[in-house]
Computed example of a mutant assay.
Amino acid sequence: MKEGPDISRIAALIGDPARANILTALMAGKALTATELAAEAGVTVQTASAHLGKLEAAQMIACRKSGRHKYFTLAGDDVGHALEALMGLAAVVGHLRTRTGPKDLALREARVCYNHLAGAKGIALYQGLLRRGALVETGEAVTLTDVGAEVLTKFGIDINALRRSKTPLCRSCLDWSARQTHLAGSVGRAVLAEILAKGWAERVTGTRVIRFSPAGTRSFEEMFSP
């Protein structure tokens, strides 16, 4: 007797190269139109629309209208975590894209993982908060401590507002490029937003890359290294 959830439908949806490229593009956390996603997938707009319909029916993406346009995003954090985990598995077993270059190195250094910081900088953030006692790991569960709440409040994050949200404060997310943990959840999202607001880093247009300035790197290390 077969038991548990049926993963075959989700696997088949992700397994199509065009749909995989669409989902990867949405990992940047920005809402994109069918035309933009068609360009990312390398297909016609009509074909992209068919793919988007299937992904929306499976509740992997969400659609909202603004004026005459429809914008698509990932359906939620769980979809982003699943995709990041699959990227990690693909890296482990050697299924890597053949074309590498400066963008690949930049992605490994710092990038958006749906709505939080990933790459070497994301791992450094997570490890720094652990060493300072701001986070505590219990298996795969991650908890923000009182020390962590104080540290992040000084950084400029309204922890009380985050606690009122339905989103978990902290979640661990396995980084595909290094197979180490970085910080997700509402705290992870808020930290990235504050880093960008402070001007320590900027998003590179049309990519998932987060580029830190030299001054921003120094400030990041001073803030999050013990």
Rank of each mutant, 00 (worst) to 15 (best):
K198W: 00
A38M: 03
A28W: 01
C170E: 04
E140L: 15
G185C: 08
T24G: 12
L130M: 05
G53W: 01
F155A: 13
K54P: 08
K154F: 12
D77Y: 13
C63V: 14
T98N: 06
G216H: 08
V142W: 03
T167F: 02
T207Y: 06
Q180E: 11
L55M: 09
P102I: 06
G199L: 12
A38R: 02
A75I: 09
T44Y: 00
R164T: 07
V45Y: 01
M87A: 12
L117S: 05
R108S: 15
G15K: 01
S177I: 00
G185W: 01
A50F: 01
C113E: 04
K70S: 09
A50K: 02
D146N: 05
K154A: 14
G80T: 03
V151P: 02
S225M: 11
R19G: 10
R131D: 12
F155M: 08
K2P: 13
L169P: 11
I7Q: 10
S172C: 06
A197W: 02
V79F: 06
L37C: 15
L37G: 12
T138K: 11
G88H: 10
P102C: 08
A20G: 07
D146P: 04
V151K: 10
R211I: 00
E36A: 11
V112D: 04
I22S: 10
L13T: 07
L183R: 03
E221D: 15
L192Q: 06
